[in-house]
């Protein structure tokens, strides 16, 4: 990627947030592309991991948060593991996902945040994730069910669900752990933290 100095945004507030969480190692990136070479899902990304790091350093907030990269990243940690400069690239992706969700702007792959919302909602409700109700919640709220009713994809889901049920792999009722009050307190603290 040729360096175009004209694209460097002088306002460093965006980069500062990321440096604060990740550490100053991010400045050591010399664009070796090892992260992108080892990434198992790079084929699906519009901006490759090493390019994302460069863009972060250039303060290109709009470009980075609009990339589908943050939503197709599988959090497999290969990039972080192999980076010769100790940059926690997977965590950069985490921070970018967090910032994108906080921004309230629509995501390029909305299903991913909808899944996370359903998953965290399940924890908040019972302290633990009850797989069946979490899946139902995700399916309804993300429009996944609607889509599958149109395409006929629901048939496969029903077939697999039935197989799992018959094999005793679907727990029908959630287990509410007694710690649910503690867990909800953690969620409230997390909200406060975000505001701060």
């Amino acid at each position: 990627m040729p360096i175009q100095t004209s694209v460097v945004n002088k306002d460093t507030r965006f980069r500062d947030i990321i440096v604060e969480t990740i550490g100053p190692e991010i400045f050591d990136c010399y664009q070796c592309s090892k992260c992108s070479a080892g990434c198992p899902v790079s084929f699906s990304m519009d901006i490759l991991p090493h390019q994302m790091i460069r863009s972060v350093l250039f303060n290109q907030q709009e470009k980075v948060l609009a990339a589908n990269t943050i939503w197709t990243c599988a959090s497999c940690e290969t990039c972080t593991t192999r980076c010769p400069n100790d940059i926690d690239i997977a965590k950069v992706m985490d921070v970018l996902r967090q910032l994108q969700q906080e921004s309230g702007r629509p995501s390029t792959v909305p299903k991913v945040s909808q899944f996370h919302a359903a998953f965290l909602g399940a924890i908040q409700k019972n302290g633990r994730v009850h797989e069946l109700s979490m899946m139902q919640d995700f399916s309804l709220k993300s429009g996944d069910l609607k889509e599958k009713l149109k395409t006929g994809g629901w048939k496969n889901d029903v077939k697999l669900g039935l197989k799992m049920f018959l094999r005793g792999k679907l727990k029908l009722l959630p287990h509410k752990c007694r710690a649910v009050a503690d867990v909800r307190k953690i969620f409230n603290q997390a909200k406060e933290h975000k505001k701060a």
Binding site: Q98, H116, L120, A190, K194
Partner: peptide, 8 residues
Amino acid sequence: SAHCTNEF
């Protein structure tokens, strides 16, 4: 889901 959404 937690690490993608909220650091705390």
